[in-house]
């Protein structure tokens, strides 16, 4: 018994460097799969969302004058691509919604009348919809909204529902910026947070998107 145990021990011990070598080799192979070869090792530290996207005009103020008028638009976010092209544009679908007077928190601020959010659901990345009627919301999205009814954002994949009129406090920072409130409180479903944000600006009669929050699969 002792002899066999010894032999097995030696066998097991010799297998250790082999296992170690395999692990080291595996690291190299896995590294090959990681798409980060643009600028050599330095680029490994670069966040793909750090490419810096340009401002894009998305709407005219005159398009959104009535309460609950909304517009779908696509914002092209640049992200670092680890190929000869260096950058790629990811299409981010988004909504801009005009709030009715009673929900505008700060009446003097022209930006407070709009809710601008990325349509990529923060739960698992589907594109959510603007639901203007209560039967559809109750039947298709399992949320019976309290009266008086107003439109909601709702995601068809896992039935998360967001209320555009209410902000939600989330802990910590989003992309390095501290937010006290994000528009679109989660009122139903499994979503862990409100929709991803977009910063925008109104200049003259045009609305521009200046920046977007990273994360989310475009």
């Amino acid at each position: 018994m002792q002899e066999t145990t010894r032999r097995t021990l030696l066998k097991a011990l010799t297998s250790l460097p082999i296992v170690g070598g395999a692990v080291a080799l595996q690291h190299v192979i896995l590294r090959y799969f990681k798409p980060t070869m643009a600028g050599g090792l330095k680029a490994m530290a670069a966040d793909p969302d750090s490419a810096g996207s340009s401002e894009q005009e998305i709407a005219d103020v005159s398009e959104l004058t009535q309460p609950w008028e909304f517009k779908e638009f696509i914002y092209i976010r640049k992200s670092v691509e680890y190929s000869s092209r260096k950058f790629q544009g990811a299409k981010i679908p988004a909504f801009i919604v005009r709030l009715p007077e009673e929900y505008i928190a700060d009446k003097k601020d022209p930006k407070a009348a709009y809710v601008v959010v990325q349509r990529i659901c923060p739960h698992l990345g589907c594109t959510f919809n603007f639901i203007p009627n209560s039967e559809e919301l109750a039947g298709g999205y399992n949320y019976k909204a309290p009266a008086p009814f107003h439109p909601y954002f709702a995601c068809p994949c896992h039935l998360s529902v967001y209320d555009p009129t209410r902000p939600q406090v989330i802990a910590g920072t989003v992309a390095g910026k501290a937010f006290d409130k994000l528009p679109g409180k989660v009122v139903s479903g499994p979503a862990p947070r409100p929709p991803r944000t977009m910063s925008f600006d109104i200049r003259g009669s045009k609305i521009y998107i200046t920046d977007t929050e990273g994360g989310g699969v475009g």
Binding site: I74, H123, C126, N129, P156, L159, P190
Partner: peptide, 28 residues
């Protein structure tokens, strides 16, 4: 079409049950 999510959205049959489970739980 990345701009339109079909409703109801379905995956291949062997992922369906897991998809339903995702509705009922906290994503983490």
């Amino acid at each position: 079409n990345p701009e339109v999510t079909p409703n109801p959205i379905l995956s291949d049959w062997y992922f369906l049950a897991m998809y339903h489970m995702l509705k009922l739980q906290d994503p983490y």
